[in-house]
Design a protein around this nucleic acid. Structure first.
Length: 265
DNA sequence: ATGGTAGTTAAACTA
């Protein structure tokens, strides 16, 4: 009675949909959060997804951003869908919360932030601050909560291939890490660290400079669990195989296995 | 080495 929750920044769903369905074909009972769709909902190839036995709930945007849940066809329809941080005015599609039975699932594409001190960096911190306040109420309301996505923050130095080179830089800087710590301190657990992991485990590698071949990566794709769900986690990891496929996303999928009946299966 | 690559969209923007 297990299922899996996973997170994958696909950097264009149009390009990567075949890879997504290929990846899911080997792990059928999976709730998959996608980021960087780079397409509007109307452009998503729903037929291909349904042929593979899945459904999609999307919050898309043209060219940039966009998030979605892909869930098994035999699950009941998601409810209580939220597509924005409440009260935070933002034209960018970065948030998708939905309930699958008693499972509350929040999918995030956190602002990248460009460079410490930039305008986009200030937007990132404001966004994270608003996220924190919203998640406080979500955690209070839902015992079984998963918050996942591309956080664009490496939580600790062990999540960075060269901590000295990245020290103080965007994705690793203190203000970002503090904001993430504050969110986790609301009562969430980084599922990846519940289990022993290989050193130098990363989820994102720059396309440039042969970064993947040299494992010059960062772990910025996270699956955070509420205390109740953390107790049900039986394994977690990052699957680097799709990063080795032709024409890959620059991110690899992160996953966690939960010892629990599938929502409304 | 302030480079390099990838996606979208049509020269520039974002990552």
């Amino acid at each position: 009675m297990m299922f899996e929750v996973a997170s994958w920044n696909v950097n264009s769903l149009k390009v990567r949909l075949p890879q997504v369905l290929d990846w899911l074909s080997k792990r059928p009972a999976t709730l998959l959060g996608l980021q960087e769709l780079k397409q509007v909902n109307e452009a998503v190839d729903i037929e291909k997804i349904e042929q593979a036995g899945y459904r999609i709930l999307a919050n898309g945007q043209k060219t940039y951003n966009g998030v979605a849940w892909i869930y098994p066809q035999n699950w009941s329809e998601p409810t209580d869908v939220i597509t924005d941080i409440p009260g935070f005015d933002d034209p960018q599609r970065r948030v998708l919360a939905a309930s699958f039975g008693s499972l509350r699932a929040i999918n995030l594409y956190v602002v990248n932030g460009e460079a410490v001190g930039s305008e986009k960096f200030e937007y990132k911190l404001a966004w994270l601050n608003a996220l924190h306040d919203w998640l406080a109420s979500e955690i209070a309301a839902h015992e079984q909560l998963v918050v996942l996505g591309d956080f664009n923050i490496a939580p600790e130095d062990r999540d960075v291939h060269d901590p000295q080179a990245w020290a103080g830089k965007v994705l690793c800087s203190e203000p970002e890490r503090n904001a993430l710590e504050k969110i986790i301190a609301l009562g969430l657990v980084d599922s990846f660290r519940l289990f022993e992991q290989p050193e130098q485990s990363f989820s994102w590698w720059d396309y440039r400079a042969a970064a993947f071949r040299r494992n010059h990566g960062l772990r910025i794709d996270l699956i955070l669990l509420s205390q109740t769900l953390a107790k049900k986690a039986t394994a977690a990891g990052i699957d680097i195989e799709p990063r080795q496929w032709p024409r890959p996303s620059d991110h690899a999928p992160a996953w966690v296995e939960l010892n629990q009946a599938q929502p409304a299966a």
